[in-house]
Amino acid sequence: MGESVIYHNPRCSTSRKILELLRDNGIEPTVIQYLKTPPTRAELQKLIADAGIPVRAAVRSRDALYAELRLADASDDELLDALAEHPALIERPFVVTAKGTRLARPVDDVRELL
């Protein structure tokens, strides 16, 4: 299998569960702690497009920063700019394997990548 990647936040229980699921299935992914090493705007745009989801689905809309930045009516471009500038707003985890890219929420969404 090609290289696998997880955009991970170790403080997130879902992210930890996904990492464990990958490892339990023999996949040792490259772990990118996106709060320490944020993806670029272009990388975010590609992850979102490859996952086949709308930009808004990749945003943590319940985060206080979302309201503070007034992103409820933001365009996709404005949302991408906000995600690139404030990686804490990125919904997690994104998982990339040879079988594709998914925003692994719910956890079962990642099973098709195993």
Rank of each mutant, 00 (worst) to 15 (best):
G2N: 15
S4P: 03
Y7E: 07
N9V: 03
P10D: 10
P10K: 10
R11I: 10
R11L: 14
R11A: 15
C12Y: 06
T14K: 15
T14S: 12
S15F: 08
R16L: 11
R23T: 10
R23A: 09
R23F: 02
D24N: 15
D24M: 09
I27N: 01
V31M: 09
Q33H: 15
Y34A: 05
Y34M: 08
L35F: 13
L35Y: 13
K36T: 14
K36E: 15
T40G: 12
R41A: 05
R41H: 10
L44E: 11
K46I: 07
L47W: 06
L47C: 04
A49H: 09
A49Y: 01
A49F: 08
D50Y: 07
P54S: 13
P54T: 13
R56W: 02
R60F: 09
R60T: 07
R60V: 08
R62H: 12
D63W: 04
D63P: 03
A64N: 11
A67W: 00
L71A: 03
A74V: 06
S75E: 02
S75H: 00
D77I: 03
D77Y: 02
E78V: 01
L79T: 01
L79V: 09
L80W: 04
D81Q: 13
L83N: 05
A84L: 10
A84W: 07
A84G: 13
P87F: 12
A88V: 15
L89Q: 07
R92I: 12
P93G: 02
F94Y: 14
T97G: 05
A98T: 15
K99D: 08
A104H: 03
A104M: 03
P106A: 11
V107R: 12
D108E: 15
D109W: 05
R111D: 00
L114R: 01
